[in-house]
Each structure stands twice: as structure tokens, then as C-alpha cells.
């Protein structure tokens, strides 16, 4: 069972308290009704599924209930870091070798 650091509670809590909520940094278009079919497909259906570092959303659903962002390595399953919702994708990752 993984330990995940909630950036709002500021502590590591067991995985059971959290729920994954898909890829992060995919903003809903402000004028979504006017999106083309292709753009809507990219926004809603296409996800990156990388081997290695992924930016994803998690929710501390059985804790503070906040959504936040996490950087995880899909190969080692290790969390590189977590940060609050709305914060930009970190420019530099701590201890990242890739």
C-alpha cells in the first residue's frame, strides 16, 4: 500500500484514503460549446499514458476531500511529489533522473 502526501493536510496518508482522478493539467475549455470535434476529442478522450513520469489528479476522498495534483513514475509506482490543485506543472522535479 502506497503512502501519499496530501498537500493540504501536509502529511503522508495511506493509499486507501485516496482516489485517483485521471490525468492532470487538462483544462476544460472556457467556451466548450464552440470546440471543434477534433479539439473536443483531444480534450475529453485522449490521454498520454506515459511509461515514466505522469502528472495526475488525486483526491483525498476519505480525508480532507480535496483534489490535488501528483507526479508519479508509472514504472516504479513511486510518487515524485504532490502539489495543490491550480498550481502549475512543476518546472523541475525533485531528484528526477529522467
Amino acid at each position: 500500500m502506497l503512502l501519499i502526501r496530501c498537500p493540504y493536510c501536509e502529511e503522508e496518508r495511506p493509499e486507501l484514503e485516496f482516489r485517483n482522478a485521471g490525468e492532470a493539467h487538462i483544462a476544460r475549455p472556457t467556451n466548450i460549446a464552440a470546440e471543434s470535434e477534433d479539439d473536443f476529442e483531444k480534450f475529453f478522450f485522449i490521454r498520454s499514458n506515459p511509461k515514466g513520469v505522469i502528472y495526475e489528479r488525486w483526491r483525498h476522498i476519505h480525508g480532507c476531500a480535496r483534489f490535488f495534483n501528483a507526479v508519479r513514475d508509472t514504472v516504479t509506482d513511486k510518487f515524485v511529489m504532490t502539489y495543490k490543485a491550480g498550481e502549475p506543472r512543476p518546472a523541475k522535479l525533485p531528484g528526477a533522473s529522467k
Binding site: 482516489r19 482522478a21 476544460r28 489528479r57 483526491r59 476531500a65 480535496r66 483534489f67 490543485a85 491550480g86
Partner: peptide, 13 residues
């Protein structure tokens, strides 16, 4: 509830 919270916290904060 999860769906509403998701939009409230992340898309319409």
C-alpha cells in the same frame, strides 16, 4: 457528490 466536488474544486473554483 464526487462529480460535483471535482468541478467545484478544479474547474469552477
Amino acid at each position: 457528490m464526487h462529480h460535483m466536488e471535482d468541478y467545484l474544486q478544479t474547474e469552477f473554483p
